[in-house]
Design a binder for these strands. Structure first.
Lengths: 112, 112
DNA sequence: GATATAGGCAACCAGGAGGTTGCATCATGA
DNA sequence: TCATGATGCAACCTCCTGGTTGCCTATATC
């Protein structure tokens, strides 16, 4: 297995958050969130930055497991992978749940 | 208004993701997710890195709106702010919703 | 085969991130 | 008031990040 495209379950959500912590990469994720597959050329068509910069961002997303790529003819097709998104969603749900629990405990304490 | 502690509604979720994209900061968020308030000394008690490094991370979280701080006596008390977390939760919900919609459209197309 | 298109690779650059050390400041408590 | 504990400030360092440019390779297409 190469060091690229690590798609195994990662118990640490920080790299996923880090991969999403960039405007350009977030917009790439949004473009791919319709389930369609897109080439690098198409993904860098309406951006200010160069194709190479977009490619770098796509590799970052791929290393975080957020997208997958496959060569089709002369172009690389990229697709969104929803698993890491589900992972950090459940992580944030856990944080919110702890927060809500603490709040309701405080509320019931006050009402005593 | 200072450049620190920007807590107004930010339409760009990327800085929030970026602030969470670090192991140390994620663990700080987890520690504060019980709704309790903690000083810098307490938050850097059981970490490997120095107090100053923890302080820097707390300022990053504060600039992203994820925590708030207030000086109480000789210590700075930090508390979690749930609003940015709710913001990126709804953002991720939107991505997942678009993904699910695309999937069900594909499914119904196949079944035709 | 010649040409245009899609992508990969590598070097390079400026600036920021994460971390440290050293020292100053402020509040507390005996 | 004086020692201690909590924090702030600033300089410094290394490494990573986001971006560029130049060039090479591979695939279509005419």
């Amino acid at each position: 297995m190469s060091t690229h495209s690590i798609q195994t379950r990662d118990p640490d959500p920080a790299p996923i958050f880090a991969a999403l912590g960039d405007r350009t990469r977030l917009s790439l994720v949004m473009k791919l969130s319709d389930g369609q597959t897109r080439s690098i050329a198409k993904l860098s068509a309406d951006t200010e930055i160069t194709r190479q910069a977009v490619t770098k961002h796509l590799r970052v997303l791929e290393n975080a497991g957020l997208v997958s790529s496959s060569r089709v003819g002369r172009e690389s097709q990229f697709a969104l992978r929803p698993e890491p998104i589900a992972e950090i969603r459940s992580y944030l749900d856990e944080v919110s749940r702890q927060w809500d629990d603490a709040l309701s405990r405080l509320r019931s304490f006050i009402e005593q």
